[in-house]
Computed example of a mutant assay.
Amino acid sequence: MNLGKVIGTVVATRKDERLTGCKLLITQPVDFKYKPLGSPFIAVDTVGAGIGEIVIYTTSGTAARLAAKKLEAPIDIAIIGIVDRVDLY
């Protein structure tokens, strides 16, 4: 599992039919202090996340498809949680 920040949305009226009903969000990977890491990517939202929220995502294709409840869909990354806070000691 990884942390990211939702920075945008993707609307695709023409897409693989197995993605119908999936909300697609542009997510920026972040570290534990919410500083950007790497390049943004598109993830399937399974928890109702919104712009600006810090989220937990999985990058394992199988885990992402399981989270989205679409085992046959071409999903590599899924948002699986919304972060309330991170405590570092």
Rank of each mutant, 00 (worst) to 15 (best):
R65D: 07
A64E: 04
A12T: 07
V11E: 01
V6P: 00
G50D: 11
F32P: 02
K23M: 13
D84H: 07
T27C: 14
V6H: 00
G48K: 08
C22D: 01
I82D: 15
F32S: 14
K23S: 14
P36T: 12
G48Y: 05
D84A: 13
Y57L: 15
D31I: 10
V55M: 08
K35H: 03
A64R: 03
D87R: 08
T62G: 02
P74T: 04
C22M: 14
D16P: 08
G4M: 06
D16F: 14
G61S: 15
T46A: 01
D16A: 15
S60E: 05
V6K: 02
A63M: 07
I56D: 02
I26N: 00
Q28C: 11
R65V: 02
G50R: 01
G50K: 04
L25R: 09
E17V: 14
G48S: 10
V86A: 14
E72G: 03
M1K: 12
C22K: 06
A43S: 13
I54T: 13
I51H: 03
Q28H: 02
K15S: 15
I26C: 04
P29M: 11
D45V: 00
E72T: 09
G81V: 08
D45K: 04
G8E: 08
I26V: 15
Y89Q: 11
V86H: 14
G50Q: 04
V86S: 14
Y89I: 14
I56Q: 04
T46E: 01
E17F: 08
L19D: 04
F32Y: 11
E72A: 12
S60F: 00
L3D: 06
V86P: 09
I77D: 01
I7G: 04
I26W: 00
F41W: 03
D31K: 13
P40W: 03
D45T: 03
G81W: 05
I77N: 05
I54D: 02
L71F: 04
E53P: 00
K15D: 07
G4C: 08
Y89F: 15
G21W: 12
K70I: 01
T62M: 08
P40K: 01
V55T: 08
I42Q: 07
Y89C: 09
N2Y: 14
T59G: 13
G21R: 09
I77K: 12
I54E: 02
Y89D: 14
V47C: 04
D76F: 04
